[in-house]
């Protein structure tokens, strides 16, 4: 920019000596150096600060205390919050009872169905003396025999059973559709509650399930595997098959069924696993 020169104030402006090309180059070089230094300093400073902050956050998360033990336990408190938020996100946005698990032809079902766990099956047990106990809202306890359940229309499913560990196996189950069970035994009022809980007769294994998953059209109380009565290690006389959940929720040897608006206790959720465990 050119400013008009006031001759009185600055009678003889000194003309700067013409710079040699070397001087110009040198000055430009110094300018460039300063610019490089400034930009590098800001960039590396920011990078280091953010890096330290990120590392600090990670250490915080890794060392964060476990949640207060309740219905769920054993997970870092912030991660448990995340698991619960994930549940809400996927339930609200994506869960739909019309979303069915894929089914397969019978021939594809495994002949040797994997037995992965015997939690809740270790107590001495007489299948002949078994009755299913259903705790109603009124406090009344329904006692249902296996013959009553077998007398109702049977449904079958051949689906890919998925374990939380990561394995899967196509297996074939037969039993009573859970929504038919609700209907037949007059449990409509109970089905309006938020949750359903199931426990083995010895109370050593127990699951809590959200009602939409329990009422899913593919959920059943199974008494057959591969067209034969359930063996004891698969949960005779009656087990849960709930294809919208991991295997951990598919309780064997159901002793009691209860209903609640609060989350019923859940064996694996007390050990750090997601309560919902929905697929």
């Amino acid at each position: 920019m050119e400013t008009p020169i006031d001759p009185e104030q600055n009678p003889e402006p000194e003309k700067p000596a013409a710079k040699t090309p070397e001087q110009i180059a040198k000055e430009q070089d110094a300018l460039l150096d300063a610019q490089i230094k400034r930009r590098s300093f800001i960039a590396f400073g920011t990078f280091t600060a953010l890096g330290v902050a990120a590392y600090g956050s990670w250490r915080w998360l890794l060392k964060s205390p476990d949640e207060v033990a309740g219905v769920t336990a054993g997970a870092h408190a912030p991660l448990r919050r995340a698991l619960n938020k994930n549940e809400l996100f996927f339930r609200k946005l994506f869960y739909n009872e019309k979303h069915l698990v894929r089914t397969y032809p019978k021939e594809m079902a495994a002949k040797n169905v994997r037995v992965n766990s015997d939690e809740g099956l270790k107590t001495k047990f007489d299948p002949a003396a078994w009755v299913l106990q259903v705790k109603k809202k009124s406090g009344e306890v329904l006692k249902i025999t296996i013959d009553e359940i077998r007398a109702l229309p049977k449904t079958e499913i051949v689906f890919d059973f998925k374990c939380v560990e990561g394995w899967d196996q196509i297996s074939h189950w037969g039993g009573l559709k859970f929504s038919d069970f609700i209907e037949h035994f007059g449990l409509q009022e109970e089905a309006k509650l938020e949750y359903c809980g199931m426990e083995t007769p010895d109370k050593q294994y127990y699951v809590g399930l959200d009602m939409p998953s329990v009422m899913h059209p593919q959920t059943m109380l199974a008494y057959e595997v591969n067209d034969k009565p359930l063996p004891l290690d698969h949960g005779a006389p009656l087990r849960l098959i709930i294809p919208v959940k991991y295997g951990i929720k598919n309780l064997k040897r159901i002793g009691t069924i209860n209903f609640s608006d609060q989350r019923p206790r859940d064996y694996w959720a007390e050990l750090g696993y997601d309560y919902y465990s929905g697929l």
Binding site: F90, F94, Y95, N96, H99, L100, V101, R102, D160, K162, G166, D168, P243, V244, G278, L279
Partner: peptide, 20 residues
């Protein structure tokens, strides 16, 4: 993660087993 809710995606990935 959600093989039932996204069964179409699971199918596209070749099924649960292959997807893993």
């Amino acid at each position: 993660y959600k093989p039932v809710q996204f069964n179409w995606l699971c199918w596209l990935c070749g099924g649960y087993h292959v997807a893993r």
